[in-house]
Nucleic acid binder design. Sequence first.
DNA 1: CTATTGAAAA
DNA 2: TTTTCAATAG
Lengths: 266, 266
Amino acid sequence: MLELRLVQGSLLKKVMEAIKELVTDANFDCSASGFSLQAMDSSHVALVALLLRSEGFEHYRCDRNISMGMNLNNMSKMLKCAGNDDIITIKADDGSDTVTFMFESPSQDKISDFEMKLMDIDSEHLGIPEAEYHAIVRMPSSEFARICKDLSSIGDTVVISVTKEGVKFSTRGDIGTANIVCMQNTTVDKPEEATVIEMNEPVSLTFALRYMNSFTKATPLSNTVTISLSNELPVVVEYKIAEMGYVRFYLAPKIEEDEDETKPQV
Amino acid sequence: MLELRLVQGSLLKKVMEAIKELVTDANFDCSASGFSLQAMDSSHVALVALLLRSEGFEHYRCDRNISMGMNLNNMSKMLKCAGNDDIITIKADDGSDTVTFMFESPSQDKISDFEMKLMDIDSEHLGIPEAEYHAIVRMPSSEFARICKDLSSIGDTVVISVTKEGVKFSTRGDIGTANIVCMQNTTVDKPEEATVIEMNEPVSLTFALRYMNSFTKATPLSNTVTISLSNELPVVVEYKIAEMGYVRFYLAPKIEEDEDETKPQV
DNA sequence: CTATTGAAAA
DNA sequence: TTTTCAATAG
């Protein structure tokens, strides 16, 4: 028996919007500690990891660990039927091959329930090692989204270079080149507007903008984004979910000087 | 000679937006009592009835009953040229085959007139008997629109079931099932937010969501919608037009247990 | 927060 | 053309 009651239902709606472009089918794993997901994108290049800790739910009951395979597009369709300030409850009976989403309007006079078939999905759960990163950049998520969008109108890849002073995003395309530098800046009115750089070693890595732009679909989840970089490691683009957890995206760097379109593997 | 002056011109614009998706050509009938229309939708499944009583016009002159055939798309194009707080006057000379729409800006410094050709349209004017309905639901029009939109992302038809406690909207599709229950609720701050159920007998009827969604184009006309249901009778979805009349939509229920796509007749 | 509108992208 | 995104108004 599984019953998870989330007062701020809009969070779950935003999570779905954030990941459904990248991942079409995935297993949601429920345990006593929380509700999580880990999945490769359909071209097996990027990895998405979601965690919603049990403490963030108003009510959290998960008698035994279960893994529920869902089509994220269908799940998203149903979640779109929830109002933005509805309370969402996810329910599944033991052994059932369906999951039920229940939506309660704030005034409690409208109650909806949507039942969806579960699916069997093979998935290797990758252990993601905690790594030390050469550089960690925290910046406003909207600014990062704007940069990725702007650069993708010029080129296909972005070189992210971090120095103590700032982070530089560069691209190159048929029509020219572009460089956007964000200086470290901690003297802003609101902490979420700061650009903060923690750096042990300078790094410069190249990524496909197509994936970066998919990651920025998570922008509504958080005012800030954290980008963790190391040479030879996948970048981690993390959006924290207040009081509950995170959505993290992993993407392997392209090997520099490699001008063709070979797909890197995570 | 016909001359109808409507101070709140936006009403007429909204009426056109409400019905032009369903009806392409129709006769507008003018008499001393008012300006009305009755027409089947192009697939002859739903019926639209409009009434604007003469008392709602600032000036109403209609020397003799006339029926003016108009293409609603063209009429809508012209009405879109009126500002939302323009005063609209509809004029037609006896025996003329055109109608003129005149728009006066509130400040009276801009006066437009648009002349449109009338057309000959055959139409049987159906007498719609006043019926006793088993159940009448009044609810916020925006909520009804939201429900029809949400359900149509899951299935093609909606089952509307009314009990004393509330009204349930259900659908079923490839990806799962959905049920939305709205409780009777008369204890709200504003009367237009109430959900009120008058029921003599429980009813449960099935309708095509495609038509329901067309009906909800009338949502801007009124804060509330009234849904009148009886077994074996077409449902009536009514949007009242303040001080003037109504737009009513009629749609025959699908015969239950009928899984194929036969079109019901009104 | 929702709804509408206009602009931009697929 | 259809769909989606962003922005603004209520």
